[in-house]
């Protein structure tokens, strides 16, 4: 099977998984005690208003009809209106998505590149002070709750030293001033994003480094490493071209497995830094009982995870010639 066919197949699988997740959501919100339609209707609405919404979302129809209606609405981009903001959920998601993608993918890319590089080096130089230090460092960061690391970072870098703003993504003084140029705006965003990005990077970094180290240590025992040494290749070539290249494979697999768990770190980081992304939005929506917004935020986070999985699968297939699609 060719690569294209494989990708098409995986996209189809993602589509199916998404429908299953939506079905779970649908059942979940129907199981709620009380008015089965409460998830769509704000208690603050007038009865007339409720009736209009009911009809609009087919809530007066049988359950199977409601289900199909729900699916159709989703794929048309109609997620209902947010109770809290009184705006279409679609617009809100569209607003927050870029910020989340910036923070999360940024953190994943930086942490995995750093983790792979450092893991490679410390495994190669077995038993140095560097290995002990980074393993200990990695262990602690692996076990620390990320939001606590965020709080400490805020305390030290924003509160004590004032290097960075306390939260948000855009400084109001810069963005409300019409005379601010692109460069100033970019600098402002960078200033806001640095701290949350660093914290999230640290959280992901520890895991990727520890996995790379273990994987590298196992790879170094492989016979082809002996072959490479016997060929007279320089140490660096053996380490990078022969050992690290193979040791990376389990790291990619681990990424695919871990991503569903680690996006939680993104949610917690966004909340700690009041970073206006999907993660903060899902928490706020849940706390304000804004069900349509919470559901849509969740579905988009789920979609991001599925896409990350797809990327990992494609990367793996590209890196390992043994893979049969």
């Amino acid at each position: 099977m060719s690569m294209q066919k494989y990708i098409v197949k995986r996209i189809f699988q993602i589509f199916l998984t998404l429908i299953i997740i939506m079905t779970i959501m649908f059942i979940l919100f129907r199981m709620m005690p009380g008015d089965p339609t409460a998830f769509m209707l704000d208690t603050r609405m007038t009865p007339e208003h409720k009736a209009i919404i009911r009809a609009q979302f087919g809530l007066d129809k049988p359950i199977w009809y409601q289900y199909l209606f729900y699916l159709r609405n989703f794929f048309r981009g109609n997620f209902g209106r947010s109770f809290y903001y009184a705006r279409p959920v679609y617009d809100l998601v569209k607003e927050k998505l870029p910020a989340t993608i910036l923070l999360w993918t940024g953190a994943y890319i930086i942490s995995y590149s750093l983790g792979i590089t450092l893991g490679k080096i410390i495994a190669w130089r077995r038993g140095g002070k560097l290995e002990f230090g980074s393993t200990l460092f990695g262990l602690f960061f692996y076990c620390m709750p990320i939001f606590w690391v965020g709080l400490i970072a805020l305390w030290i870098f924003s509160y004590k030293f004032g290097f960075f703003p306390l939260g948000g993504l855009k400084g109001p003084d810069v963005w409300s001033d019409p005379s601010s140029g692109m460069l100033l705006k970019a600098y402002d965003v960078l200033k806001h994003v640095t701290l949350p990005l660093s914290v999230l990077t640290l959280a992901f970094f520890a895991g990727s480094m520890l996995v790379m180290r273990t994987s590298m240590l196992e790879t170094l025992r492989e016979d082809y490493i002996m072959t490479a040494r016997a060929k007279g290749l320089p140490e660096k070539t053996i380490r990078d071209r022969h050992a690290a290249r193979n040791a990376m494979l389990p790291v990619v697999t681990t990424f695919a497995i871990a991503v569903a768990g680690s996006v939680g770190g993104g949610v917690l980081t966004e909340t700690t830094f009041s970073y206006p992304g999907l993660g903060k939005m899902i928490v706020d929506a849940t706390l304000t009982f804004d069900y349509p917004l919470a559901q849509a935020s969740f579905l988009f986070i789920a979609l991001l995870v599925l896409v990350a999985n797809l990327v990992a699968d494609i990367l793996y297939a590209y890196l390992d010639p043994r893979i049969v699609y």
């Binding site: 939680g264 949610v267 899902i282 929506a285 069900y291 969740f298 991001l304 995870v305």
Partner: peptide, 18 residues
């Protein structure tokens, strides 16, 4: 496979909402 691709914490958040 599906359980493993569910974003863990966000799901707990919406479920607790539900």
């Amino acid at each position: 496979d599906i359980v493993l691709t569910l974003p863990f914490l966000p799901l707990i958040i919406v479920v607790s909402a539900a």
